[in-house]
């Protein structure tokens, strides 16, 4: 699927998807694959000591979902910058509703505003932006 950019106006949603539910197993798999073994994401007792009800999702797993949204529409080699702010914790056993909105389309660079809401809520857990080089492959 290619994001429909030709006719898009600023702030138009150009791509979106909802992730799978992020379970304890998802977090264990991400911890192993990423090397981020912080027990906040793996050990419920530790998470409670830190003030949470259960383990929380790695912020980077939320950012990775936004990254998927990018690479499903643009070759990874054309991404120039990708930034995220983790505004709210993501509880375990939730999905993320990821959206990319058009910011600006220049001659050589496309900029997008990104957000990941906890699915079914208004809570924006990850907000960010990305810039994409528009080149021969576009």
């Amino acid at each position: 699927m290619k994001a429909d950019l030709a006719a898009a106006l600023p702030n138009a949603v150009v791509a979106e998807f909802i992730t799978e539910v992020m379970t304890h197993e998802s977090l264990q798999r991400y911890a192993k694959a990423s090397g981020d073994l912080n027990p906040l994401h793996l050990d419920p007792a530790f998470a409670r000591q830190a003030g949470f009800d259960d383990v929380i999702v790695h912020g980077m797993l939320g950012m990775a979902a936004l990254g998927r949204l990018l690479t499903e529409h643009f070759p990874a080699s054309t991404i120039r910058t990708f930034n995220a702010r983790f505004g709210a914790i993501i509880p375990v056993n939730r999905a993320l509703h990821c959206r990319a909105l058009l910011d600006q389309r220049g001659d050589t660079l496309l900029t997008l505003t990104l957000e990941a809401r906890i699915a079914g809520t208004d809570t924006i857990a990850v907000s960010g932006n990305a810039s994409i080089a528009l080149g021969a492959s576009d």
Binding site: D36, A64, L70
Partner: peptide, 29 residues
């Protein structure tokens, strides 16, 4: 491939997913 699978991405391209740099920089704890 393991990282791509863990984030639900397609591992086919051989290119690192955009957040893979975090795993690289986090090596060796």
């Amino acid at each position: 491939a393991e990282f791509a699978a863990a984030i639900g991405a397609d591992a086919g391209s051989g290119l690192a997913p955009p957040t893979f740099m975090k795993a690289i920089e986090g090596e060796h704890g």
